[in-house]
Amino acid sequence: MSFTEMKELTKKNQEFIHIATNQLIKAGKTDAEIKELLEEILPVILENQKAGVTARSLYGAPSDWAASKTTRSEEADKPELNENPWLMWLDSSLLLLAIIGVVNGAMNSFGAGVNYGLITMLLIGFGVGAGMYMMYHFVYRDQVKTGKRPSFVKAIGFLVLATLAWSLVFLLAALIPSSINPVVSPFFAILIGAAAFGIRYLLKKKYNIRNAMQPMP
């Protein structure tokens, strides 16, 4: 973008470039990046101003144009979320196990919770975690790919099936004999929950796993 080209612009178009440039600077763009972006639109602006069409008419408000360039750049820099089924299932399961452990342990400390056995906690956490991944896979995955929301009937249908499956998990958990399912103390339950949170955090940081319970980017 040369000084001569800037002089050829009308005052309104010069103002557009000036505001857009300031917004790009505030967004942290380098001089080279700003020059490249402006050089893309300057010929178009010069050509259209001959017909009385302003830069604002072409690109909207200069601050909005600059923001759109910044947002697109940031989104392009984001690494793609990992949708490995096993990792997504593990991520959901660890989150649920963490919540069960911490909440149940804290409530039991005041005598208000349910005393789960160790295997029961694991079965509920990983069983319900599997159900959460299935909901993502069969209902919400297409929404992530195409932006199109799933049909109401399909969402309700899978929700009913998931609820039945979770009920079966709780039923099976209740049938586990106490001889192989030692009751977890409140302190140990909180410790399990904290460990699950920590492991999930490390795995998510390393593998950038998509959260099945928040499918939209």
Rank of each mutant, 00 (worst) to 15 (best):
K26E: 10
I124V: 14
L87K: 09
F197D: 02
G198R: 03
P62C: 13
R72T: 10
A130N: 05
Y136E: 01
S57P: 00
S93V: 05
A20E: 01
T146Y: 10
G125K: 00
S92F: 07
A112F: 15
K154E: 10
A66L: 02
P215D: 02
K204S: 12
I100H: 01
L191G: 11
H18K: 10
T4F: 15
K7S: 15
L81G: 08
L161Q: 08
K148S: 08
E39S: 15
E15P: 00
K204E: 10
E40I: 14
G131V: 03
Y201E: 09
M213T: 06
F126N: 06
E39H: 02
F170S: 08
W86D: 03
I180T: 06
V114I: 15
F188P: 00
A130E: 01
L172K: 06
F3Q: 07
M132I: 13
G147I: 05
L161E: 08
N208S: 12
M134N: 08
F138P: 01
T163F: 07
Q143V: 04
G129I: 03
D142G: 03
V160N: 05
A194M: 12
L171C: 08
V184N: 09
K12M: 11
F187H: 11
M107V: 14
A194K: 02
Y140C: 04
P215S: 13
A61D: 09
F197V: 10
E47V: 05
N82R: 09
K35I: 13
W86H: 11
F158Q: 02
A20S: 08
T4V: 13
S92Y: 03
M135N: 02
A76V: 09
V114L: 14
P182A: 08
S68F: 14
I190P: 01
E15A: 09
L94K: 02
L96C: 08
M1C: 10
E80C: 04
L90C: 11
K11T: 12
A51D: 12
R141K: 15
I25R: 15
V102K: 12
A51F: 14
W65S: 00
V103E: 10
P215N: 06
Y133A: 01
